[in-house]
Design a protein around this nucleic acid. Structure first.
Length: 198
DNA sequence: ATGGGGATCGTCT
DNA sequence: GACGATCCCCATC
């Protein structure tokens, strides 16, 4: 039940991303329905990282990335999807961790209803856009403080013993350093289906 | 199992 | 005016 403190997020994005594997994300949706799951895949985006939205400096869209750690950065992409990040590091730096996949544990029926009843349970949250759709996350949550008392978004401490691997990040553009950096973290235990390509 | 294309629009050049 | 930290469907192998 231990909510992660702001100090957890006030470290570099790679360290936070690695530590978030196995952590539990809980969301109270706009309709009031609670959902949640175990974080099984995430990616770090850093200062001076040509793949990061923060790379070209502060804009209206990425402002939350330059705010205090422990806040959400939610952005709209491809005209139809949302992606959820947690801001890390220090205010003004511009680092975040993109949450890419969960193993659903709470509110499965609500997730199915939001995602379409055809989708398999294993596919409810196995992608950054799917995760937001299943959890009811949209731009209304951009900038909110995950450490605030009554936050609709909360992250709790990681379960022990969940192993992970590091790989290059998915779908990015940027220089050779950005493309080769092993800043995507994927849980490998005990669910092999989450460890591979998609 | 793998690959290509369409949907759809906010953001930045 | 181009393109994106994506997803889904359909075609083909």
């Amino acid at each position: 039940m231990s909510r992660l403190p702001r100090s957890f997020f006030a470290r570099d994005a790679v360290t936070v991303a690695r530590a978030l594997i196995g952590a539990r994300l809980f969301v109270r949706g706009p309709d009031g329905h609670p959902t949640g799951g175990i974080i099984t895949e995430c990616e770090a985006y850093r200062q001076d990282d040509t793949a990061s939205h923060s790379h070209r400096g502060l804009t209206a869209r990425n402002a939350a990335m330059f705010g205090p750690p422990g806040h959400a950065y939610v952005y709209f992409i491809y005209g139809m999807h949302f992606c959820l990040n947690v801001v890390t590091g220090a205010p003004g730096v511009g680092e975040a961790v993109l949450l890419r996949a969960l193993r659903p544990t709470h509110g499965l029926a609500v997730m199915r209803a939001r995602r379409g009843n055809r989708v398999a349970d294993a596919s409810l949250c196995d992608g950054p856009g799917k995760l937001c759709q299943a959890l009811g996350i949209d731009r209304a949550l951009n900038g909110i403080d995950l450490c605030a008392r009554a936050a609709p978004l909360r992250v709790h401490a990681a379960l022990d013993g969940l192993h992970h691997t590091a790989t290059p990040r998915i779908g990015i553009s940027g220089d050779a350093v950005a493309r080769s950096a092993l800043w995507r973290f994927v849980a490998t235990d005990p669910a092999p289906r989450y460890d591979g390509a998609r």
